[in-house]
Deep mutational scan, measured.
Amino acid sequence: DVEPGKFYKGVVTRIEKYGAFINLNEQVRGLLRPRDMISLRLENLNVGDEIIVQAIDVRPEKREIDFKYIP
Rank of each mutant, 00 (worst) to 15 (best):
D1Q: 14
D1I: 15
D1R: 15
V2D: 03
V2Y: 09
E3I: 15
E3P: 05
E3V: 15
P4K: 15
P4R: 14
G5K: 06
G5Q: 06
G5E: 05
K6H: 12
K6S: 09
F7E: 05
F7K: 06
Y8T: 01
Y8M: 02
Y8R: 00
Y8E: 00
Y8S: 01
K9V: 12
K9I: 12
K9F: 10
K9Q: 10
K9C: 11
G10Q: 02
G10A: 06
G10N: 00
V11A: 05
V11G: 02
V11F: 11
V11N: 06
V11I: 14
V11Q: 09
V12K: 00
V12G: 00
T13M: 09
T13W: 07
T13H: 06
T13C: 07
R14D: 04
I15C: 03
E16T: 14
E16Y: 12
K17F: 13
K17I: 13
K17T: 13
K17A: 13
Y18N: 05
G19E: 01
G19I: 03
A20G: 02
A20H: 01
A20W: 03
F21C: 05
F21G: 01
F21E: 04
F21Y: 14
F21D: 02
F21L: 09
F21Q: 04
I22K: 00
I22P: 00
I22Y: 01
I22A: 00
N23P: 00
L24C: 04
L24D: 00
N25R: 07
N25F: 09
N25L: 04
E26N: 14
Q27M: 14
Q27G: 12
V28R: 06
V28I: 14
V28A: 08
V28E: 06
R29E: 09
R29A: 11
R29Y: 13
R29S: 13
R29K: 11
G30L: 04
G30V: 04
G30H: 02
G30A: 03
G30W: 03
L31P: 01
L31Y: 04
L31H: 03
L31R: 03
L32A: 01
L32H: 01
L32Q: 01
L32Y: 02
L32T: 01
R33E: 02
R33I: 04
R33S: 04
R33T: 03
R33L: 04
P34W: 10
P34V: 13
P34I: 11
R35K: 14
R35N: 10
R35A: 11
D36C: 07
D36H: 13
D36M: 07
D36L: 05
M37C: 05
M37K: 02
I38E: 13
I38R: 11
I38Y: 12
S39A: 13
S39W: 11
L40E: 05
L40V: 08
L40M: 11
L40H: 05
L40D: 04
L40C: 08
R41W: 09
R41G: 11
R41M: 12
L42I: 12
L42T: 04
L42G: 03
E43V: 10
E43C: 10
E43F: 09
E43W: 11
E43I: 11
N44M: 14
N44W: 14
N44E: 15
N44V: 09
N44S: 13
L45P: 01
L45D: 00
L45K: 01
L45M: 09
N46M: 14
N46K: 15
N46I: 12
V47T: 06
V47Q: 05
V47D: 03
V47G: 02
G48M: 06
G48F: 07
G48I: 01
D49E: 08
D49A: 07
D49W: 05
D49I: 06
D49V: 05
E50V: 15
E50W: 15
E50G: 12
I51E: 00
I51Q: 00
I51Y: 02
I51K: 00
I52C: 11
I52Q: 06
V53S: 00
V53L: 04
V53Y: 01
V53Q: 00
Q54D: 01
A55W: 03
A55M: 05
I56Q: 07
I56K: 12
D57I: 11
V58F: 08
V58L: 06
R59Q: 05
R59E: 04
R59V: 05
R59N: 09
E61V: 09
E61D: 14
E61L: 10
E61N: 13
K62W: 08
K62F: 10
K62L: 14
R63N: 14
R63I: 07
E64R: 09
E64F: 14
E64W: 14
E64Q: 14
I65Y: 08
I65E: 01
I65H: 04
I65K: 02
I65S: 02
D66F: 13
D66I: 10
D66W: 09
F67N: 01
F67R: 01
F67P: 01
K68N: 05
K68V: 08
K68A: 15
K68Y: 08
K68M: 13
K68C: 08
K68T: 08
Y69T: 03
Y69P: 02
Y69E: 07
Y69I: 04
I70K: 08
P71H: 10
